[in-house]
C-alpha cells in the first residue's frame, strides 16, 4: 500500500467511526420528519362542515389548535386530515400507518390500556389505566415519542421521560391507530418558521404561563406529592407544541387561552433561548440559581482563599 494511503487510513477510519456514531446518536429527529406536511393546500372553503366530533380539548376560539382554524384540508373521503394556519399546522397521521400502529399497540400498550384502548386491561384493575379514546393523535404521539410510554413503573404517580422505545414513525403509527377508534383533535402540530417568530412575545408568555412550574430557565423541578415538571432543555419543537396543546399528566392544557401564533412564539423561545441560553458571563453553574452560586462562592471563593491564608500564615 502506498505510504500516503497508509498514513491516511487510520485518521479516515477514526472519522468514519465518529461520523457513524454521531449519526446514530443524533438521528432521533422530530416526528415532523415523517409527515409531508410542509405544503398544505388550502383547498377548503369556510362553509365546509367539520367532520370530526367534539374532542376533550375543544375550545371555541379561532386558530387555537382545533379544527376551527383558517385552513382545513380534507381527503377524498371527506375526513379532516389537516388544519391550521401560517403559524402551526396540525396534521393527522397517515391512514397507511394504522395496521402498523395496531400491531405495535397490541405489543406494547394493550397489556395496560386494554385491547380496545379503553383503559380496561386483560387482567388488571379497570380504571387504573387511562382510556385513550377521543384524546387526539397529538396526545398519544407526545407520550410515546417522548419515551414516557410504555411506562417503566405504572405505579409511579408520574411517568418519567426516558429513552423512547418506539421510533418517531412508530409513535405516529400508534397514534394513528388509537385515533382511528375514536377520531378527535388535536392533531400533531408542525410549527412553521420558528426562526422568524416573535421571541419577545414568547418570552413574556413563557414567563407568565410556564415558568411557574418549569422555572424561568426551563430546568424543571420537583412539584407536589412526588410529581415534577421536566426540564425543557432537550425537547423537539413538536413535542413542546404538543405538550402545550394537550396538557399531559398534571400539566394544564392551553387551548383557547393561547392562539397558534402565541404557541409558535413560545416554541420559538423554548427552542431558541431555553435550549440555547446566552451565557456570556461564563459557566452557568447548572442554571440552578443563587443556591449554586452561593455554594461556589463559599467553596471556591471563601474556601480557596482560606486555603491561601493557610499557606501564607503560621500554623501554630
Amino acid at each position: 500500500m502506498p505510504k500516503l494511503t497508509k498514513q491516511l487510513l487510520l485518521p479516515a477510519l477514526v472519522l468514519l467511526t465518529v461520523g457513524l456514531t454521531m449519526m446514530i446518536l443524533f438521528s432521533g429527529g422530530s416526528s415532523s420528519a415523517t409527515t409531508s406536511a410542509e405544503s398544505i393546500p388550502s383547498t377548503v372553503t369556510a362553509a365546509q362542515a367539520l367532520t370530526v366530533p367534539p374532542a376533550a380539548y375543544q375550545t371555541g376560539r379561532f386558530n387555537s389548535g382545533t379544527a376551527f382554524s383558517s385552513v382545513r384540508v380534507h381527503n377524498s373521503s371527506g375526513q379532516l386530515i389537516a388544519y391550521g394556519n401560517r403559524d402551526i399546522t396540525y396534521v393527522a397521521p397517515s391512514d397507511k400507518l394504522i395496521p402498523l400502529g395496531e400491531a405495535l399497540y397490541m405489543q406494547n400498550c394493550a397489556s395496560c390500556h386494554g385491547s380496545t384502548a379503553n383503559g380496561v386491561p386483560a387482567n388488571g384493575t379497570p380504571g387504573a389505566y387511562p382510556d385513550l379514546r377521543g384524546l387526539g393523535p397529538a396526545t398519544v404521539d407526545f407520550w410515546v415519542a417522548s419515551g414516557r410510554m410504555p411506562a417503566s413503573d405504572p405505579r409511579n404517580i408520574q411517568a418519567e421521560r426516558k429513552q423512547p422505545r418506539l421510533t418517531p414513525t412508530q409513535a405516529l403509527a400508534v397514534a394513528a391507530w388509537v385515533n382511528s377508534l375514536s377520531p378527535a383533535t388535536p392533531y400533531v402540530p408542525i410549527v412553521h418558521s420558528i426562526q422568524t417568530a416573535d421571541v419577545s412575545d414568547g418570552f413574556q408568555l413563557f414567563s407568565l404561563n410556564c415558568a411557574a412550574c418549569h422555572t424561568i430557565t426551563g430546568d424543571g423541578d420537583a412539584l407536589a406529592r412526588g410529581t415534577n415538571a421536566p426540564s425543557l432543555r432537550n425537547i423537539p419543537a413538536t413535542q413542546v407544541a404538543e405538550a402545550i396543546r394537550t396538557g399531559p399528566g398534571n400539566m394544564p392544557r392551553f387551548t383557547g387561552n393561547l392562539s397558534d401564533e402565541q404557541v409558535r412564539n413560545v416554541v420559538a423561545y423554548v427552542t431558541g433561548y431555553i435550549q440555547h441560553p446566552r451565557d456570556p458571563g461564563g459557566f452557568d453553574l447548572g442554571g440552578l440559581g443563587p443556591v449554586a452560586e452561593g455554594f461556589v462562592a463559599l467553596s471556591f471563593g471563601v474556601g480557596l482563599l482560606a486555603l491561601v491564608a493557610f499557606w501564607i500564615g503560621d500554623r501554630t
Binding site: A56, G60, R61, L208, N209, G247, P252, R253, N257
Partner: peptide
C-alpha cells in the same frame, strides 16, 4: 381579561386549562 386584554369567553378553556 387575559394579559393581552382579551376577554375570556365560556368556550375558551378546555377542561384542565388555566389562565391568569
Amino acid at each position: 381579561v387575559d394579559s393581552t386584554g382579551r376577554a375570556i369567553h365560556v368556550d375558551d378553556l378546555a377542561v384542565g386549562g388555566i389562565v391568569t
